[in-house]
Design a protein around this nucleic acid. Sequence first.
DNA 1: ATTAGGG
DNA 2: CCCTAAT
Length: 616
Amino acid sequence: MVFKRKLDCLSVGFDFPNVPRAPRSCRRKVLNKRTDDADQICAIDLLALAGKLLQESESSSASSNAFEEIKQEQEDKYKPFKCESSDKGNSVSRPAYENTSEKCVVNSFSFPDNDDILERTPMSDNKKIHGLTPVGCDVNVNTGFQQGVATGGLGDGGLITDTCNVEDATSLGVQFPKSVCVDGDLKSPSYMDMTPNDSFARHGNHTNLGRRDDDEKLYSYHKLSNKFKPYRSPTIRRIRKSLSSKYWKQVPKDIGHSRADVGVKALYRKRKSCYGYNAWQRETIYKRRKSSERSSVVTSDGGLSSGSVSKLPEKGDAVKLSIKSFRIPELFIEVPQTATVGSLKRTVMEAVSVLLSGGIRVGVLVQGKKVRDDRKTLSQSGISCEENLSNLGFTLEPGPSKVHVPLCCEDPVVPTNPANSSERSAASPMLESEIPHADDVINPGNIVDNNLELVPYQSDMSVDEPSSDSRALVPLPALALEVKALDIAPLNQKPKRTELAQRRTRRPFSVTEVEALVHAVEELGTGRWRDVKLRAFENADHRTYVDLKDKWKTLVHTASISPQQRRGEPVPQELLDRVLRAYGYWSQRQGKHQARGAPKDPDMKRGEALGSGVSV
DNA sequence: ATTAGGG
DNA sequence: CCCTAAT
């Protein structure tokens, strides 16, 4: 309708080609503020939360809210973080990458089992540096280097060598800023006090609370983290990247040639600010490459190994157990032989962060079997003080944990605003069809993405209807939301481990978007994607002009095939018709252009059809 | 950085 | 969507 109207109004000497191009200066530079730090922080948050939970469990203070505490800690923890980079196992110092590299495989991180580590890292010190709360402790990387060696075929032999000797062969001593915090005041930091009907349930509650109440603070927290650019660690990007199955395959080769980054580079080359999370990720990879930094980390995808558990003195009905270690998916780490221990630490930290930020969840194994029903009580699951807890295992698995979601919902508005979702479905049923993509909807956490994706356009629809102004198609405010939201979406939902850093998440064009695209092309033609982007998708950062071009390409194709052969959410025939018309028009025009002004092509009454472009 | 096309 | 080549 809107379009019809437009079409009708400019039958008069419409001179398509003369649509002024937006000045280059208008190019929108989207500064993606996400940083590795943010990511790291996210991971840290998780760890912190885990620590808190443990802590809480231990103290049996059912009333305290671990999440609450954590969130507070986080509010200022990074101020100090920024200061002096003590060698306290922080990831602040910049690594000095050089030529040769070492590959290490980290398979498990174990929580401190005694005060040893705590001693090495004075609480006060830790607190000061990391602004952490009372709980300061390091995660001792009890790397499963044995495994690393086993997988050593990957590397060029440089596995763990030098660097690994720096400290104990069994412990790389990677210290997390304060990630997992086992209360130092407690004797047994890693205790986990679980009461059959309570513990797990409680955790669940925390989770929910976090989601509901902490979004905002966490959000600001994330923003805060942006201040730490100086400590940006491109490694994470690469790590993420490497997580992708596709590139993972390349790892062996790359590593072998000490050029792991090359393959990565090309991939992200020119995508800077356009894809939110993925964008910063890639951008950094790129930059990193340029700075010839050379450490890289890769994780094998699978690797959910169970951690070891041991039974602890029980008291009453409670089940006590200590988790000595969590195996994590293999992490292949490559650092220059000349790299400093500090850089190695950092690299590992980054690797872990990536892993965690991608979303992790804890799995419980009893007798080697996974207990999937979270509602089961421990006893029902065969976990009790009577049982030999050696049968109990925990796994860290890729994928968003319930806890993870809230941690990453930086944007307190979009993702959590129920109004949006309801508004959406009510306002534009059409959009419902775009929710589906299994690719994107991986779990409940996806609500965020869906909303993000839909909300904006939904509103744009409403705005669009009343006005024929093409600009209305993409209302800034609405898209602003989207952009913002999208920026974080990946974190919440792309739990697919391997896919994590791989391709950008698939984001099928909504009908609304298609509409906007078609409209823009009608006006601008098919050779000015940048302009199309600027005009109709300027605020849709996840749509690059290349995307638009590609979409157009597929649209043309779609329009030329039978409806039966089309897939995905159906595009209104009306739009497809316009696509063909515009396509025909512009194609022809291209040829005749040289010859003379506006051509007359039989395909469309160009005068009217494409005329919509006159507007603006 | 864009555009055009192939994959 | 990705990647390359050519602008």
